[in-house]
Design a protein around this nucleic acid. Structure first.
Length: 282
DNA sequence: TCCCAGGAGGTAT
DNA sequence: ATACCTCATGGG
């Protein structure tokens, strides 16, 4: 059990529904069940009271970034009325610290897809390759480590509704090897060179790289630009941009650099509030 | 039927 | 560097 304090807001629901993670499900009593690596975690929030099983306090605090000073972060990017409203609408949303490998695969799975489809793909991969985790006679599946996805037997991944992304996951699984050295290297680098390194992996372009840097490596300068964020930025901040063309690399860079200047060093946090509030504002 | 979704790789200029 | 083309899949 963890007791939250008023000066450090946290909304479990907003944190888990904003689209940053894909393996959490709400259960009928209002709590949540999720799989992180090979752990099955259950957690629920009743006001300032957070109860959970499957992981210790230390893990939960770290995973949900409960040790971050959220009001200070929000204050740092609260620089105009629109982001202010988004921040109020998603009060308590925190960026999660995801395990790098499953985050990397998740965002390779994400390209040119919608969130329900991404969730299905990841579930397929876990079911096909992951370690079984039993609870009350029900079997869940952990997320498979790289060697399990690097096997040579043909494109078994395409059976996971991966489409053309199957070969990207397989190639990346081969390239990272069987240690976490790749993640340590990325972590040790500043944002821009870390981004260039990540983009060397097959299936990782600018958008996926920025998501992975933000969600797995806490590089908060990353500002992922998808079609939603592009729309919001054009409507609210950069009206000179013309759309209805594919998002070019130049335009992507223009948007993320504007965001870095306008929102500051936590622009990635601002991005998640904009994304999470995308349906709410006319 | 067409269009869209948390895009990226490949190829020809 | 930049412009086009293609890549599966499911839902509206």
């Amino acid at each position: 059990m963890l007791s939250l304090t008023d000066d450090q807001p946290f909304s479990l629901d907003r944190t888990l529904t904003c689209g940053q993670v894909f393996r959490w499900h709400q259960v009928p009593d209002g709590g949540w069940r999720g799989i992180v690596g090979d752990r099955l975690i259950r957690i629920r929030q009743d006001g300032s009271r957070l109860t959970f099983s499957g992981a210790g306090k230390k893990f939960i605090k770290h995973y949900f970034s409960l040790d971050s000073d959220l009001p200070a972060i929000v204050a740092s990017f609260d620089r105009d009325p629109f982001i202010h409203r988004s921040a109020e609408a998603c009060h308590g949303l925190r960026l999660i610290r995801q395990p790098p490998w499953e985050c990397l695969v998740s965002y390779i799975c994400s390209t040119n897809s919608n969130i329900p489809m991404i969730r299905k793909r990841i579930e397929h991969i876990a079911r096909a390759f992951g370690k079984p985790v039993e609870e009350k006679g029900i079997t869940y599946f952990g997320f498979p480590k790289p060697p399990l996805l690097a096997g040579t037997c043909e494109d078994i991944l395409t059976g996971c509704k991966m489409g053309y992304r199957g070969k990207y996951v397989k190639k990346t699984a081969c390239d990272v090897g069987d240690t976490d050295d790749w993640a340590a290297r990325i972590r040790s680098l500043p944002y821009e060179p870390a981004r260039r390194e990540l983009m060397k992996f097959s299936g990782v372009g600018p958008k996926a790289a920025d998501c992975i840097l933000l969600f797995a490596f806490q590089k908060y300068e990353a500002f992922p630009v998808d079609v939603w964020i592009r729309r919001i930025m054009r409507e609210r901040y950069l009206p000179a941009l013309v759309s209805n063309t594919p998002l070019s690399s130049n335009e992507y860079n223009a948007i993320r650099r504007f965001a870095r200047d306008h929102f500051g060093e936590y622009c990635g946090y601002a991005q998640e509030y904009l994304y999470a509030a995308r349906e709410e504002d006319p």
